[in-house]
């Protein structure tokens, strides 16, 4: 059932762009989790998990788990990927 219905095709394109357009796949170096990462700047990080990645991550499998706590090993893997130049910083095409 339709919810908030955009009136233009371009809005759907925007939705795809803003949610997925700048994601780069990063594999965790400690488990099989693969997440989408976006870096708009050195201090900004966006991490898109999937159900598969969440299931693969031992840190996320811990119970009870605080919602806000991220995975430090994934964090380190992302920082490593950024240092290695695998994740572009800034959207490049002007966001």
């Amino acid at each position: 059932m339709a919810s908030f219905v955009p009136t233009s095709e371009e809005t759907l394109a925007d939705q795809r762009l803003y949610t997925a357009g700048w994601l780069t796949s990063v594999s965790c170096q400690d488990c099989l989790a693969v997440v989408g990462v976006q870096k708009n700047s050195a201090h900004h990080t966006s991490i898109q998990w999937s159900a598969e990645a969440l299931a693969a991550c031992p840190e996320m499998g811990r119970r009870p788990r605080e919602l806000h706590a991220g995975c430090p090993r994934l964090q380190a893997s992302i920082e490593q990927a950024v240092r290695a130049g695998q994740v572009p910083i800034g959207a490049g095409d002007g966001f």
Partner: peptide, 12 residues
Amino acid sequence: PDMVARFEFEVD
């Protein structure tokens, strides 16, 4: 699936 998938965002 992507409506409920975990998503983290740190604003600079």
